[in-house]
Design a protein around this nucleic acid. Structure first.
Lengths: 142, 142
DNA sequence: GTATATGCAAAGCATTTGCATTAAA
DNA sequence: TTTAATGCAAATGCTTTGCATATAC
């Protein structure tokens, strides 16, 4: 059910494990993590002072290439990185404060397959659903 | 069924109609238009030499604010702008060449409502579905 | 005539890159 | 020892902004 920690999976891939990569991977551990590169940097620095933003980007890009992390682009601003690649889920974003939450749809209801007539000859690899709305506290302020 | 041309709808809103805004609106007329700001500029300039990129951005942002155009962020690079706000549809993007196509799902199958238990107290305004895959010609090249 | 749009050039962010230095294996 | 990662600073790409000028109404 639950997979081994990210750091262990990375070690198993023979990924060259530097101190920087280790702390970044530790920051990216978890189920509801949706951090921007800048936020990853801040948290990584709490564990290890010598981490640079360039290394955060390099590392996140590699994790994305490996399929260990998924970039989430909800418009407005910076890409956020989601380490939850196992369980199929989607996202809910607040139009006010931009916060990003995971949402889980009933897989039976989520038969969101593109009918062949709408595939335009593409080899479909996946789909992303983004719900937009106002979170409770932003709703109040409007 | 089909709404009046964009330019007419804008006039009806008492939108100050400059030459630049008119040509930009003309470029944004249509059902399967997914242009970036830069592309809008190029096409607008074919009709009117004195249009600047700043004006294109200003105008597109206003059209978005009015709800006449929807920004589509498919990752990698520039936002594209979609004037098809009437018919509910979704998007298919090629991982290779980045081309963006409209796809129409059967509305009955598209009962993609977020169950209350997954709404986190949000007032949901809408949802976007993005399918990713390889288009025929990019498939061949891999 | 007055409020508002335009265009330019500069500024702002997010992200990438080149290259000398450093560290993992 | 060799190969690859780091960090800095500069460069890039997209988008926004300030302000003087021009224009729709």
């Amino acid at each position: 059910m639950s997979s081994p920690p990210l750091v262990d999976r990375l070690r198993a891939r023979n990924w060259r494990l530097t101190a920087q990569r280790r702390v970044i991977a530790e920051v990216m551990e978890g189920e509801h993590v949706h951090l921007s590169a800048e936020e990853v940097l801040q948290r990584a620095r709490q564990r290890l002072r010598e981490v640079s933003l360039a290394t955060v980007y390099n590392t996140l890009n590699e994790l994305v290439a490996m399929g260990e992390v998924k970039p989430v682009d909800a418009g407005s601003g910076a890409t956020r990185y989601d380490p939850n690649t196992g369980a199929s889920h989607h996202h809910l974003v607040c139009l006010g404060c931009n916060q990003l939450l995971d949402v889980y749809l009933d897989p039976s209801a989520t038969a969101i397959e593109l009918p062949p007539s709408e595939r335009h000859g593409f080899r479909i690899l996946g789909e992303e659903i983004l719900f937009r709305g106002w979170c409770p506290s932003c709703s109040d302020q409007v």
